[in-house]
Nucleic acid binder design. Structure first.
Lengths: 205, 205
DNA sequence: CTCATTTCCTACACCTGTGTAGGTTCGGAA
DNA sequence: TTCCGAACCTACACAGGTGTAGGAAATGAG
């Protein structure tokens, strides 16, 4: 005889369980399969219970993102110490990138959604991630700008920030997808070679 | 009085129209909203018509990918003429990128899905795009490798191919999303400066 | 003009998810 | 033990998608 009623929980506790259930559904079936119904099923509860805890799917996912963001993104900016931008930006960027790749490798489940590796993310999630990326990019552009002023090079800091972002994200994806073929060192070393001695009408030839 | 019956078309012609309709829906509402129903509505036709042209949604999307691949990706490779890789890869890459950005601007609807700008792509689509990217990347890596051998530089061609790919894709995304802020020239010029000029003021100034 | 064929349509039965109204059960306090 | 409110449930009406059967309309050949 199956228990007809799910165990009763105070609201806050129920909310936590629902977020756990949602996360589990997402990890197993992807964002595409997430629905109030699916979450309720996963939590062993009926839909009205979910509605009594959150206003709807968007509110629930939003709460889930709050919980995740605290765990993940806060520490990301710490890797790019704004005040240690030396005379040249390149070493600063390379160092930050190395650090980030380590963090990503250490907590894959946290970063996979952020890097767009979990597909079918609904609008709420995408917007959230995108706005965070914009913040980081602006921060980067500022740092790069000040670095460029020191070295006297005339380059477009905003575009460079875009380049650094996509490069970092691609590297992170590679490290997550296939760490054997693409160890962080291989990636960073190549970039270092590219930045340190650009190709072109080579003076050493 | 609205026409009750949509104009009659031979099967092949109808198929083309349906693919156009599907592409339009995807470009406007994203993959998440694509359904037999939505495509039929967009084409001004009823669902059974769609079923008489394609076995189902997967078959239709598959056909759409076939068509897109021919139109888009075939010509993309032409922009990277393998045999014209001169002594230095940088100018070759910059030229190809400029060409690609032009093509992308000319046919946004074709490229938007390819660049992942339309989210929620179903599995069929993602796999298809990913495998095509792998092909292009391999081609690129090969070209870069031979370029590096000429200049005698010791860099990781495979990683560089990844970098060129993501950079190109990011640039294309920027051009599609906000052509006013990010005209192709601004992007390419910045990259040129980064690659072509070693630390120090530009010689052409 | 007639008619057959092709092309398209309406209508149906079914599925899955949404949000809510109103009834049921649990479990702690009196 | 009784009782009452919090927590849970069932059941409904609705919305949108699927796939198909069977009928209506356009169009070209005779």
């Amino acid at each position: 005889m199956k228990r007809r009623y799910a165990p009763r929980l105070p609201l806050e506790e129920r909310r936590e369980r629902l977020l756990d259930a949602a996360l589990h559904v997402i990890a197993r079936d992807g964002y595409g399969k997430v629905s109030i119904e699916a979450i309720a099923r996963e939590a062993g509860v009926s839909r009205p219970v979910v509605y009594s805890a959150y206003a709807g799917l968007d509110a629930l996912l939003d709460a889930l993102l709050d919980r995740t963001q605290q765990r993940a993104l806060g520490s990301a900016l710490d890797l790019f110490p704004r005040d240690e931008v030396g005379a040249d930006v390149a070493p600063w960027i390379l160092a930050a990138m190395t650090g980030l790749l380590e963090v990503v490798q250490r907590e894959p489940d946290v970063w996979r959604p952020v890097l767009g590796l979990t597909r079918d993310a609904p609008a709420v999630v995408r917007e959230r991630i995108e706005s965070t990326r914009m913040l980081i990019r602006a921060y980067l552009a500022d740092a790069i700008q000040s670095g460029l002023e020191h070295t006297g090079r005339d380059l477009d800091a905003e575009i460079l920030a875009h380049l650094v972002m996509t490069t970092t994200e691609e590297f992170a994806r590679l490290v997550l997808d296939d760490p054997v073929t693409y160890p962080p060192q291989r990636l960073v070393t190549t970039l270092e070679g590219l930045l340190g001695a650009p190709p072109g009408p080579s003076p050493t030839d």
